[in-house]
Structures are given as structure tokens and as C-alpha cells.
Design a protein around this nucleic acid. Structure first.
Length: 492
RNA sequence: GCCCCCGUAGCUCAGUUGGUUAGAGCGGCGGCCUUUUAAGCCGCGCGGCGCGGGUUCGAAUCCCGCCGGGGGUACCA
């Protein structure tokens, strides 16, 4: 290494390979199997909080991490070492390390992973906590250069495809995914504390159901039959309520074979819970309470900044019927136009043969109302055509007891008083079959096992689905779902 | 799916009325430096401009196609 006079024209990858070989020739294992009894850097920092500038301690520490910065000074240098708990500066001096270990240390590359031992001190000038190291050991050689240390990694494509590089380079990204993890933990805790039982139902399903969406299809070789990746957990969870699990939830991935956008990833994380003897009003109340309490625990506040506006999740959230919400923004009273032709006329469009009345209402809601709902809002009492699994409204004919929660212009939850009359459920499936026949690819296939379960007797039940990715978007201010999903869907 | 925009060194970016061997910072390589923090100083460009065609005396710059990404739009959590 470095014996020729002329400048090397080798590229960065070759340089690192060359160093790897150099280390092996020097008898150093570039990938040793362990580095036992090390502390987390975060613990070391905590142990010396407030150490006065210039103070040197006898306190020895053994830490390990990736070298993310280096400032050389000839016979001494500073290295920045980072692990999953934090970052600390290392002060490496030839007089403490010895000639050869020092030379080898300085010859390491940014990105290499090392284990070190040394004593804690606070630097004279900045008072920065540092370890004056007297021993070190290579733990893993990095053969590819890290992203730019100052600008970080900004190319969004690389950030999504190679999230590990994004995490190495960008503090903000590390912070965001930690926040996501805490959100999921707090959601589980909130439900566990209230006696909800977490379950895992099939991802591979012989029939899909529980939402209006197109599924992914896959094939089981041994059984020689197709399966669907679930689009929702709803039907299995309600069968568990039939089975006597009065409070049940599942938090996991659903899959929908539809477009990708800033608020849609084909696989996404959904929470669904079902509670016996609750109705949609009680369920909506739980939703607003849970979201506010989770926000409080994760962020320390129920208020989040989103662009120019502040969204406040403190309950109670605003409530409005779908009829009023649409009427307020479009002047159209959907109940005054109860047929597809009449509603299309009121909207000033031609009735599309593939779109029923319900689809038109859904269109008005998602185009005219949803983007306007920035503060948390429950939209209530949907048309039965849109809601094949919701119980008919106790007083409003043609409507069901259903709510959707919106915030930041996005739908984040969808819940109802669950339909538990098996004969009515069978009729709803038949209606869906007609939609399917008309060409609606999102209509629900008939699920006899589910209807049979209802015939067994399901108590009145309140249930809800909450989009966890979107909730995390709201809590973090992320503009795209890709920012809160570690490896979002990309082309090949 | 459709429309618009983008794709230059490992990273962040500059470079279009088409014109000599394509530039900068960080990183890298060589050297100096025992308290620096985007450390500093001196020296060295390590890519031929996403891919493939085409126009032209000449293309990173113009045209066509493809691939990838972003934004918008359509459907959905």
C-alpha cells in the first residue's frame, strides 16, 4: 500500500479492497465473530452527562460502532463512532495506542466498524464527551463508501431502494423510524391494557374480503389452488368474536393490488379491532381517545405540525354526517337524489354503467370532502351500498352505522356497528355479486364460511380499521407514505 | 393507466442559442499537523454525462425509443 510515487488511479471500491487485503496480510481478521461486553454509546453518554470541559476521567468504556467521521492531526486524530444508541467522539493518540496500532487505525475507512476501549474526557474547547482510546479492534471492514457526510443521502430513489444507506446518512430518517416503532408499541400497549387480545389470522386466504379492493393472487403448489393475499382481516376477526374473543385485534400487513401514490403502498400496515357489545359511536370514541393518547406518549403532545397548519388530535373530534359533509361542499343532497341517474344529473355528469349510486357518493366524498378534512373529523352514516359489512342504521333508512375518520386530508380509520344478522349479510353479498357482474372489480365475493359463523350468533359488535402508515405520516409530518415505510414498493 | 418533469464522479451539485483533453465541494490517494468537530494546509481527477438508436464536421446539450425516479391525475387505507 502506498509505495508507488505516482498517484493511484484506482477507484474507491478498489482502494477498500486493497486495504482489506492489506489487513489480512498483516494478520488481522477483517470480520471477527464477536466483540463481547461492550456498552451502548448512549449509556456512556448518559454516565458522563455534564462533564466539564477539559475534565479527564479514569472511567473506562468499551464501545463499538461505525466510523462516521474523522479529523486527523498527524500523531493524533479524532474519530466519530456511532452505534444504534448514539454517537461519541474518539480521541486516538499515538502515545496511548502505540505506533503500529495507531497507523492501522488511521488507515481505516469511513464506514468501517470497530470496537474500542478508552477513558472518558470532555474536550478543552468544545467540552465534547470523548473517549481517549488505548485499544481498538476492527469488527467489520466496509467495502463501499458511505454517502456524503455533510449533505447526507438525498437521492430519493436510493433512499428508498437502499434504506440502510439512508439510515447511515440521515439522522432524520433514523428518528422517523424510531418514532414509527414507538407508535406501534404504544398502540399495542393501549389495546393490551384494555383487555384486547392480539391475534394472527391468515395472510393467505382462499377468499378475500372485508374491504372494497382488488387482491393479489398467488398459487399454492401442493394444493394446486390459488390463494389471495388478504386485503383486510375483518372477516376472520369477526369469526373470532363469534368464538368468544370479545375484544380482539390484529396489527399487520394488508395487500391491495391498486395504484401507488403518496398515500398508497401496495402492502401497508393495518390495525383492526373488534369489541363485543360496542356500537360505532363507542368505537369512534375509542379511536379518538387512542390516537390522542398515543400521540401524547410518542410526541408529548396531541398537536402536530403539517405544513402551515397545526392538527390537534385531542378529543372530541368533529362529527358530521356524510350527507351534510357533501351538501356543505357541493350543494348536492345525496338523499334527494337516491338513484344513479338522478345523482349523476345533479353532479352534471353522465351516469357510468359500471358505477352505481354508491360509487358516485364515494366519488363525491373522496374528491370534494376528504381533501378538506384537515382537522380530525368523523364522517358518519354512510349509504348501505358502500358498506356491505355494516349494520343498518337504527333510525335512518338506507344508511348504515358507519364512520370514517379523516385528518390531514386523508382517511385514517373506518369503523362500524358490525352487521351480525346473517340473512341480511347474505343479501349484502348478493348485492355485491351484482356489482361484480356489472364490472366492479372491487366488489366482495360471497363468503359462506363467514355467513355460517354469523349464523352461529355474533354479539352486537363495534369494529374499526386504522391505517398505521397514515397515522405515522400524520405524527411525523411525512408527506409521502414512502417516507414512513422502510422499503416502499418500487419497480423491479 | 394517463400527463408533466428529472437521470452528469462514491455522495451533493454546476455545466443547453451543440464546439478545444466535462467542472466544484465532500470522499479517495500521497504528504504536513497531538484538542478537532463540514478541522486546516500542499499535491493528485479517479466519471465521459441512465441505456440504445438518430441528426450533425462535431452532442452531456437537439430528435426517437426504452429503463428508472419524482410530481400530478384516476381507483383505494
Amino acid at each position: 500500500m502506498g509505495e508507488t510515487e505516482e498517484p493511484k488511479l484506482s477507484d474507491v471500491l478498489a482502494d477498500r479492497r486493497e486495504k482489506l487485503e492489506g489487513l489480512r496480510e498483516a494478520g488481522i481478521d477483517p470480520f471477527p465473530p464477536e466483540f463481547a461486553e461492550k456498552e451502548d454509546i448512549g449509556e456512556v453518554r448518559a454516565a458522563h452527562e455534564g462533564l466539564a470541559p477539559g475534565m479527564e476521567t479514569e472511567s473506562r468504556h468499551r464501545v463499538a460502532g461505525r466510523i462516521v467521521g474523522r479529523r486527523g492531526h498527524g500523531k493524533a486524530c479524532f474519530l466519530d463512532l456511532r452505534d444504534g444508541s448514539g454517537q461519541i467522539q474518539l480521541h486516538a493518540r499515538v502515545d496511548l495506542l502505540g505506533e503500529e496500532p495507531y497507523r492501522l487505525l488511521v488507515d481505516l475507512d469511513l464506514g468501517d466498524i470497530v470496537g474500542v476501549e478508552g477513558t472518558a474526557l470532555a474536550t478543552r474547547r468544545g467540552g465534547e464527551l470523548s473517549l481517549a482510546i488505548d485499544r481498538w479492534r476492527l469488527l467489520a471492514k466496509s467495502l463501499r463508501p458511505p454517502p456524503d457526510k455533510f449533505h447526507g443521502l438525498e437521492d430519493v430513489e436510493t433512499r428508498y431502494r437502499k434504506r440502510e444507506l439512508d439510515l447511515i446518512a440521515n439522522e432524520e430518517s433514523r428518528r422517523l423510524f424510531a418514532l414509527r416503532a414507538r407508535t406501534v408499541s404504544e398502540v399495542r400497549r393501549w389495546l393490551d391494557e384494555r383487555g384486547f387480545i392480539e391475534v394472527e389470522t391468515p395472510v393467505l386466504q382462499p377468499l378475500y374480503g372485508g374491504a372494497l379492493a382488488r387482491p393479489f393472487t398467488t398459487h399454492h403448489n401442493a394444493l394446486d389452488r390459488d390463494f389471495y393475499l388478504r386485503i383486510a382481516t375483518e372477516l376472520y376477526l369477526k369469526r373470532l368474536v363469534v368464538g368468544g374473543i370479545d375484544r380482539v385485534y390484529e396489527l399487520g400487513k394488508d395487500f391491495r393490488n391498486e395504484g401507488i401514490s403518496h398515500k398508497h403502498n401496495p402492502e401497508f400496515t393495518m390495525l383492526e379491532w373488534y369489541e363485543a357489545c360496542a356500537d360505532y359511536a363507542a368505537t369512534a370514541h375509542k379511536v379518538e381517545t387512542m390516537v390522542a393518547e398515543v400521540a401524547e406518549r410518542v410526541l408529548g403532545t396531541t398537536e402536530v405540525q403539517r405544513g402551515e397548519v397545526t392538527i390537534d388530535f385531542a378529543p372530541p373530534w368533529k362529527r358530521v354526517t356524510i350527507r351534510d359533509a357533501i351538501r356543505e361542499r357541493t350543494g348536492i343532497d345525496i338523499l334527494e337524489h337516491p338513484t344513479r341517474e338522478a345523482l349523476a344529473a345533479a353532479m352534471g355528469t353522465e351516469p357510468d354503467p359500471e358505477e352505481g349510486w354508491g360509487k358516485l357518493v364515494d366519488g363525491l366524498l373522496s374528491k370534494s370532502v376528504e381533501p378538506e378534512l384537515v382537522q380530525p373529523t368523523f364522517v358518519l352514516d354512510y349509504p348501505v351500498e358502500l358498506s356491505p359489512f355494516a349494520k343498518s342504521h337504527r333510525s335512518e333508512k338506507g344508511l348504515v352505522e358507519r364512520f370514517e375518520a379523516f385528518a390531514g386530508g386523508m382517511e385514517i380509520a373506518n369503523g362500524f356497528s358490525e352487521l351480525n344478522d346473517p340473512d341480511e349479510q347474505r343479501r349484502r353479498f348478493e348485492q355485491q355479486a351484482e356489482e361484480l357482474a356489472r364490472g366492479d372489480e372491487e366488489a366482495q365475493p360471497y363468503d359462506e364460511d363467514f355467513v355460517a359463523a354469523l349464523e352461529q350468533g355474533m354479539p352486537p359488535t363495534g369494529g374499526v380499521g386504522i391505517g398505521i402508515d397514515r397515522l405515522v405520516m400524520l405524527l411525523t409530518g411525512a408527506k409521502s407514505v414512502r417516507e414512513v415505510v422502510l422499503y416502499p414498493a418500487m419497480r423491479s
